[in-house]
Every structure is written in C-alpha cells, then in structure tokens.
C-alpha cells in the first residue's frame, strides 16, 4: 500500500491518541466491573482520566540515592515501546499502519520492553522494595515469555504451511487476514484453542495483574517497582499499563478472532468500517474482561516460585501440546 508521509503521521497520531484513550476507558471499566463483582459501587468510569491528570500535576520525586537519568528515562521508554506496538496491530478492519516494516517477532520484543524498563527503573530507584520488585519482574519475564513465544511462532508456522511460499506469515496483517480456525482440521482447532488459552493466561502476567501482580504486590512490598515513582513518571507508567492492556487484547483479537461483521451485514464504505471498529472494540472488551477483570477478582496473588512453576510446567506444556496438535494436523 502506498500512503503519503503526511497521511501516515496523521493516522499515527489518531492511533496513539485513540490507544491511550481506549486504554484509560478500559481501565475505568476494569475498576467499575471489579467493584461491582466485589459488591462495591466503585469509582466513576472517568476516574483513570482524573488519576492521570492528577499525577501529571503532582511533584515528581527522585530518591536521593537513585540513578536519576535512568530512573526518569524508564517510564518514557516503557510508554514509547507499547505505543509503538499500536502501529503494528490491525485495529478493526484497518491493516496495521507499519505492517510492512516489522512483524510478530518485533512485537514480541517490544512487549518485553516495558517490563525491562520497569525492572531497570526499579533497580535505579535503589530502594529495597523496588529491588525486590525488580527481581520478581525478572523472574516473571523469564517465566511467561516462553509460552508466549511458542504460541505466536506456532501460529505463524502453521500459516506458512498453508499459504503459498514467500508470503510474510509473521506479519500480523497476514495472520489476521487468514484466520486459521477455518484452514485447519479438527485436531488443529483443538491445538489452536490450547494456544489461545495459553495466550489468555499469559495476558494478565504480561500486564502484572492479580494473580501475577507480584512485582508490585501492594501488601507485600508496598508497590515494589513503583514504590519510589511519583508524579509524571508514575503517570507515564500508568498510561503505558493502560495502553499495554489494549495491545495485549488487540493481539489476542488479531491472532484468534480477527473476524469482521461488515461482510456479514453487507455493509461497505464508512458504515462497514464503523461497524468493524465497534465490533473490534467489543471483542477487545470481551478479551480484557475474561482474561484480566474476572481473573483479577477471582484469585489470590501467587508467590513468585508458584508463578514460575505455573508458566514453566502447565502453561508451557499446554502450548507445546497445542503446537504438537497443529503439527499432527498438518501431517494428517
């Protein structure tokens, strides 16, 4: 596709702004629905916006013993990394903006950047709580990256065996345009379901939400990595968490439920595009609801060794099994 540079900049700005707003809106829903499930009234939906504005005007405190430039740089890197992923995701009926310039492997790396940034920021804060949190984040990162990688690579490999040679199967646009559910046999569908399950389990870990919120664990290490962050820096981490929620949700949607309604409803043009975007938002909401909100209110926080065991054994086994089933399906 050929887009002029000016157009691309405009679309990029819209995507960035939309991603940020959407993340905060979903955060609002998250808090409201979690409160409702717990029998509380909860904050108004626009509370995350208030929070960000409030944090932005608050004083930004850097601890005396912290490595100042690292400490201040990390929130920016974290937000920049997750915001970049937005450009590689198919949103609604629209193909990824930078689809031609990077693929799934890049997304995998970009997804690890916020976690790394928080880790470095935590160590730079030189507070015992932040150090413990950073160590835990490191263990978490090593635990969930493996099943995540298996799931993503598995999908791309299976697609490469179906599409003609030379197609860029690692591009999310291509993956979204050719949903695998219809292209594989019954065994393959079971395999896909397992991979989807693995990805849904990885999602709350990637987002540091209960039961995997151990790097922040409020009652244990008082916010851990974020213990020393305040003001603008905290707001940036907050925003990057919000955007990351959208990114993870959109990734699951793009990989496993990339269907649109416009074809079904027989709509074309602007109406069809609008319908697809709305449907995309609904799918995103369902994914976030199932894998973040419900999980977050339904479990206790696990310990770091339990998380590592969970991801290395059952979740990895599940994703391997899924991969195996996909392979068997191809042979048959």
């Amino acid at each position: 596709m050929t887009v002029s540079v000016g157009n691309a900049v405009w679309q990029g700005l819209i995507i960035l702004l939309g991603g940020g707003l959407l993340g905060l809106v979903y955060k609002g829903f998250d808090r409201k629905l979690a409160a409702q499930m717990q029998g509380r009234i909860g904050p108004p939906l626009r509370q995350p916006f208030f929070d960000v504005v409030k944090l932005m005007v608050k004083e930004n405190i850097v601890p005396d013993h912290a490595v100042g430039w690292l400490f201040n740089l990390m929130p920016v890197i974290s937000l920049a990394a997750v915001a970049t992923i937005l450009f590689y995701l198919p949103l609604g009926g629209y193909a990824p903006l930078l689809g031609g310039y990077g693929d799934l492997v890049l997304i995998l790396y970009l997804l690890a950047v916020p976690a790394l940034a928080m880790m470095v920021g935590g160590f730079a804060a030189s507070s015992p709580y932040a150090s413990v949190g950073a160590q835990r984040e490191m263990v978490m990162l090593m635990s969930y990256e493996f099943p995540l990688a298996i799931a993503l690579v598995g999908l791309a490999w299976r697609l490469s065996t179906i599409l003609p040679a030379g197609s860029s199967v690692f591009s999310l646009g291509v993956l979204a345009a050719n949903p695998l559910w219809g292209l594989v046999g019954p065994l393959g569908i079971v395999g896909l379901a397992l991979l989807m399950l693995a990805l849904l389990v990885v999602t709350p870990a990637e987002l540091s939400k209960i039961p995997f919120d151990i790097p922040e664990a409020e009652t244990e290490i008082a916010g851990g990595i974020l213990a020393e962050y305040s003001g603008r820096n905290l707001a940036l981490f907050y925003l990057s968490d919000a955007v990351k929620t959208v990114v993870m949700g959109a990734l699951v949607v793009a990989l496993f439920i990339p269907y649109g309604l416009s074809g079904l409803a027989g709509l074309t043009g602007a109406a069809g595009a609008a319908l697809d975007v709305v449907f995309f938002l609904v799918k995103l909401f369902v994914v976030v609801f199932v894998s973040v909100i419900v999980v977050r209110v339904g479990f206790a926080r696990l310990k770091v060794n339990q998380v590592a065991r969970l991801f290395w054994l059952p979740v990895t086994a599940f994703s391997f099994l899924g991969l195996l089933l996909l392979a068997v399906d191809r042979v048959i």
Partner: peptide
C-alpha cells in the same frame, strides 16, 4: 462473582 455483577452493590449509598 457473576451473580454479584447483576446485583445491587452492598455499599450503603
């Protein structure tokens, strides 16, 4: 949890 989702919150207004 799901029952609570459609129930009125327990908090006194």
């Amino acid at each position: 949890l799901f029952k609570q989702l459609v129930r009125r919150p327990a908090t006194n207004p």
